[in-house]
Design a protein around this nucleic acid. Structure first.
Lengths: 265, 265
DNA sequence: CGCCACTTTGAATTAGCTCAAATTCCGTGG
DNA sequence: CCACGGAATTTGAGCTAATTCAAAGTGGCG
């Protein structure tokens, strides 16, 4: 019997028409769909899936590695970090999540979360029970498209991280990190010329594969060169006049490096 | 109208019952499903989805960044690398694919592949048109579970890469690389005590974020310490007596390093 | 106010990189 | 079959970017 598309509960039957209505404009193959912006996506999810809203205070653990996987989350406000811990205790920030990002995909394969999701800032997440999402997707290919796009984007994002860590010198990595932060804020519809880093230098360094001292020095250098400015008293508020300047800084760091051989072929 | 679950073509209708039959044993929620081994998974996919089999010769490009996304691939035999190219030309090997691995997920979000997939070794891939996969999934939640598990596993795998690059010194990174290679072979059901690296030192180094010289030195050191042995005259065949020895080597490299502060909280 | 966690900056150290040379391997053609 | 050439690999020697260690500065909060 087909568990999901013919659910025993009436839950799905109640939701599905709504989903269809909400996502009506997306009834095209995923490959030709124009991307929704995040505000719209959140609105659709909110209307269609009756998510369980949950406030997470700074420092709170949304889920921890090893916990049984049941629900996916979408971040509505705030900021979260994804921390992976190796069996020998090495800890690594493997992702930073902004408004509109999904959390928990890593749990699907094994039925158990593989990482910890920790709130860096107080915010609100929407919990979506995975089985219910699947049920709703069975009725609405558009919702399925949304889900797959989110997973796909995460895969792409993770690869960008690896690329940064592997190919950029420390200073450029920090600049690129800020650039992508600003980009994420822009996607979220928030102002991105002035950003507040709720992460410590140690956390940033861990994420970028360098020490906190190196992060500090890199930020100082960026400020010295006028690419960024420190706003406010604490040095956690950063003004980015122009994201182009950050990109230019990255290229400047890269210039003297030998161009790696062509890996294609 | 519901494009996928009520397809206009008869194609899906023809496939769907087959899928249901093939995957009958998996009609449980993903979170409680016992994982299939790769041979079984391949057999199921082969029986259920009528994939387009395609031989790729060493060096061939399966798909390239920028090409329109239409099909996902599953690697049946051989070995492929996923190469990401930044806008400034930096190239990065962001993944290595073994038997049973899926390729192309990165294309779903934007409808365009984000990376190049290049055959490192002659092999065979199975092409699955994404829209047809979706159609089949609409009829078979089990197949959807397979798809999501593959994506989820890729996300987990990518994070492991980032963890290695960020937290391990070069020697340990090479050891860990070999360990995971052996693990992948084991998963594929192939012998893994003796592995042949069809990648050049430069490719390995690129993937691991170090120079080819460093890879070479690390391999020499591993051989000197008896953790691996070079078989054959070309130094591309490597005997791994015991994957535990590789893990131990990693820990030995790690020992003198200060333990990073607890990032949780 | 005074503590504590975070940050900055400096100075010394080192892991990994760059550059260079020698060696091996393999395919090709005589 | 052997000689040759090109590509990949190994190994050595210096150099440099980033780390480690240390100390001083800053801000937030009870």
């Amino acid at each position: 019997m087909n568990l999901v598309s013919n659910p025993a509960t009436g839950h799905t039957a109640r939701l599905a028409p709504l989903v269809g209505a909400c996502l009506g404009s997306m009834q095209r193959p995923a490959s030709t769909r124009t991307p929704l912006d995040i505000a719209d996506t959140m609105k659709l999810l909110g209307n269609c899936l009756a998510p369980q809203r949950r406030v997470v205070r700074a420092g709170a653990v949304l889920y921890a590695a090893g916990e049984r996987f049941r629900t996916l989350y979408v971040l509505n406000t705030g900021l979260m970090k994804i921390v992976s811990t190796a069996s020998d205790g090495r800890e690594q920030v493997v992702g930073i999540k902004f408004r509109g990002d999904w959390l928990g995909f890593d749990g699907i394969a094994e039925g158990v979360y593989a990482c910890d999701a920790v709130a860096v800032d107080t915010g609100e997440v929407w919990g979506l029970v995975y089985d219910e999402v699947l049920a709703a997707c069975a009725e609405s290919p558009a919702l399925l498209g949304l889900l797959h796009a989110a997973m796909s984007r995460q895969i792409g994002r993770d690869r960008e991280s690896l690329m940064s860590v592997c190919t950029l010198p420390a200073d450029a990595r920090v600049a690129e990190f800020l650039r992508q932060w600003a980009e994420s804020l822009e996607r979220s519809g928030l102002r991105f010329d002035q950003i507040t880093l709720p992460l410590t230098r140690a956390e940033i360094g861990n994420f970028l594969g360098m020490t906190l001292e190196t992060v500090s020095r890199a930020l100082s250098k960026l400020a010295r060169e006028g690419v960024i400015d420190f706003a406010g008293r604490g040095r956690r508020d950063i003004c980015i006049g122009d994201t182009g300047a950050l990109a230019a800084f990255v290229q400047r760091c890269l210039a003297p490096v030998r161009t790696s051989a062509c890996l294609l072929q």
